[in-house]
Amino acid sequence: MTPLTLLYVPGDRPDRVAKALASDADVVLVDLEDAVAPSHKAEARDNAARLLAGLPDGLVQVRINHGSSRWHADDVAMLAALPLAVGARVPKVESAAEVRDLAAALPGRALHLLVESALGVERAFELATASPQVRSIGLGEADLRSDLRVDGEEGLLWARSRVVVAARAAGLVPPVMSAFTNVRDLDGLAASCRAGRALGFCGRTAIHPGQLHTIRAAFLPSAEEVAAAREVLARVGAAATEGVGAVALTDGTFLDVAMVERARWVVELGEKR
């Protein structure tokens, strides 16, 4: 099932890691990268090794430091010793070669790629298909804004759509949105999530537990949407039984294959309520 809420927590704060693991987040993202000062990198790595040794599948990802950093090799070695249930969140990815190298160093482990530069965006599909271990691809929008030299939302629209299309073309789950950094502005968060959902994103990373409910509510289909989706599936089933080729909904809309597939997706998401 696609996770809707992914909560970042700094690896050098074991108390916060424990709270995050006990929270309502679908996935906990233990961060060894941006949220951890250089002087605390080793401590964060040691904490991750100690705290993540026996967790249920899919509940945790570790964001490692980039391959160009002096911490990367130690991060990868630590992650390699953890159960395969712990995924690798890989920042600043720009080449398929680095994805394949990491896959070889972490055999069998799920890789979740973050695209944070113009070059990474241009290569989004190549990255998404670089290895069977790639499970998702998304944007790291703070660095991407800097690289593109844009401030407003408009400057990211093409990059957002590009990564949505790349994920779908590669057969991956829809990308999740980057974190909304104003933890007090829940109305702004909700509006931003709705805009992302309209572009094809499903779910979002959070930097505070207080954001989780708003994110989940924004990405879950409403009861009306689920009911409409169930009507689509019911009418298709009835038509198949009766040997009818064309099916119309009560509002006059004719069904096609794409509508049926989307209806199944909506019903599946609705079951997370």
Rank of each mutant, 00 (worst) to 15 (best):
I207P: 00
D15W: 11
L32H: 03
V86T: 02
R109F: 07
E231A: 15
R162L: 10
C202E: 11
P10W: 00
F201G: 01
A103V: 09
A104M: 03
A35M: 11
M177H: 07
V164K: 05
L32Y: 03
A18Q: 11
E116A: 15
L172Y: 10
A239E: 08
G171M: 14
E116H: 08
L139Q: 09
L269C: 10
D31F: 00
G200M: 10
A77Y: 02
D15G: 12
A227G: 00
S192T: 15
A238L: 10
T241N: 03
T241L: 12
P14I: 03
E126T: 15
A37M: 14
D147E: 05
S146W: 09
P91V: 13
R16Y: 10
A130R: 10
K19Q: 15
R194E: 15
A104T: 14
T250F: 05
V176D: 03
D24N: 01
E224Q: 01
N182L: 13
R16T: 04
G67Y: 02
G58P: 03
R262E: 13
V267Y: 08
R145N: 13
E154A: 11
A81L: 03
A25H: 01
Q133R: 10
G11I: 00
K19A: 15
V176K: 01
V36P: 03
P56T: 08
A167F: 11
G108P: 09
S178F: 09
T205D: 02
G152T: 13
H213V: 14
P175Y: 05
R45E: 05
L51S: 02
A80T: 11
P221E: 05
A25K: 00
V165H: 01
G155C: 14
L255R: 05
E271P: 12
V150W: 07
A35H: 02
M1C: 05
V257Y: 14
A169I: 01
V266L: 10
A97G: 06
W158E: 06
L212V: 05
A105H: 09
A25T: 01
L32R: 01
A42V: 13
G138M: 09
A49H: 13
D57N: 13
K19N: 12
V226I: 07
R149Q: 11
G188P: 14
G203R: 06
A179K: 04
L79I: 10
D26M: 02
R273T: 09
A97D: 14
V62H: 00
M177P: 00
F201D: 02
L79K: 09
E271N: 12
R235L: 15
A18M: 12
R100M: 14
D187L: 08
D34K: 00
R197T: 05
A85R: 15
V163S: 06
G243L: 06
L59T: 15
R109E: 00
K19H: 11
L102N: 07
R235F: 04
T253W: 08
L4F: 06
